[in-house]
Write a protein that binds this DNA or RNA. Structure first.
Lengths: 192, 192
DNA sequence: CCAGACAAGAGACGGACCGTCTCTAATGAG
DNA sequence: CTCATTAGAGACGGTCCGTCTCTTGTCTGG
């Protein structure tokens, strides 16, 4: 029964390993994921894994990166600030759900400074959205400093990290209507 | 050299174990803390640990709880809303620093729903502060819904969880002056 | 087309730590 | 004083780590 088919190499093998890692993450969760289980699932040896990644965290990070589409690639453009921000938050919530709460928690616990890697991209997206809103005259130009710009995504991220369950749509609406929009329309914080 | 001094029991032994756990946390960090190292440091056996706590997370949680003073015990009262909120945030930042970032990350990754345990107490503190501010006429009564009430502590917590370093005073000021105060004084969000 | 470099597949290895179990002797309760 | 309890000490099987070795398929340069 030994299917001595072909011996995979390079990118093909790497893709198979990352797929196996992703499946194992879903089956066992981050905390119970072992290198041996991944190697078995990918039908290869542990050495092949260690040749490419130094430890579990790096492997999982690579697997997640290979699955997650970058949000900054197309910035939502609904023609209205409120709709844009809600769209961004919706995508964030969806991506979080795809990755899975315990995977993210596990990575945050093990990887030094995972923030810049996964999180800071959202700031640029919000920047773009706010500039377009200012261009339409929806809000005064330069109304929002850095902190207010990232406020919606920061609040959602906080919510996701603490609750570890799906974030209801009503929470997104609350963040936008009760916190963010009042700040950028009514009166801006100090520009610093 | 076998100092067969006395055999500790009950609360005395428990305190010694929690002390040892706390020391081991500082020496090895959460991820490298082992039950055997704690038992050795407390000069006892593993069984004694397992008799009291089911796993590492429970033990560490107990050790942290035994060291951390509850914030809600005395609510700051500076006579001014801004000062009160800054005081609360300052205490939070200090407590976070005392516990240590990686301990908190480790616990969050392993314990199901640690939020209510460690975090929700802050909401009550903020509630009290806002009620007193409304009593002084600083802000309209009922100006802040749940989301805005907890906004400052939520933002600080988000900052602490992502940066894993000490939070500078300027960040606290930013949260209060640029985000929180404008929201409760200028115009309140929908009360929902 | 061939030889040799390279890396995949497979598994053994020592080590760390887990969580359980056993045995003894100290200790507090009645 | 007697006895139930439990601390102290360590052995145990098990899992997984990260490294090492060995064979063998596969790609590449001459």
């Amino acid at each position: 029964m030994n299917e001595r088919a072909v011996r995979r190499r390079g990118p093909e093998l790497e893709a198979a390993i990352l797929d196996a890692t992703w499946e194992e993450l879903g089956a066992a969760g981050y905390m119970n994921l072992t290198m041996e289980a991944v190697a078995d699932r990918a039908r290869t040896g542990k050495q092949v894994l260690y040749r490419r990644w130094h430890n579990r965290a790096e492997l999982v990070l690579a697997a997640v990166r290979s699955r997650v589409v970058s949000i900054s690639d197309d910035v939502p453009d609904t023609g209205e600030l409120r709709g844009d921000v809600l769209a961004v938050l919706g995508r964030m919530a969806r991506r979080y759900h795809d990755i899975g709460p315990d995977v993210l928690h596990g990575l945050m616990a093990e990887v030094r400074d995972i923030g810049p890697e996964f999180f800071s991209a959202m700031a640029d997206v919000m920047e773009t959205i706010l500039q377009r809103a200012a261009g339409r005259g929806e809000i005064p130009s330069g109304a929002a400093g850095r902190r207010i710009t990232t406020l919606p995504v920061d609040l959602l991220r906080h919510e996701m990290l603490l609750t570890s369950g799906p974030v209801p749509e009503s929470t997104l609406v609350e963040i936008v209507d009760d916190v963010f929009l009042p700040l950028v329309t009514c009166r801006a914080g100090r520009p610093r």
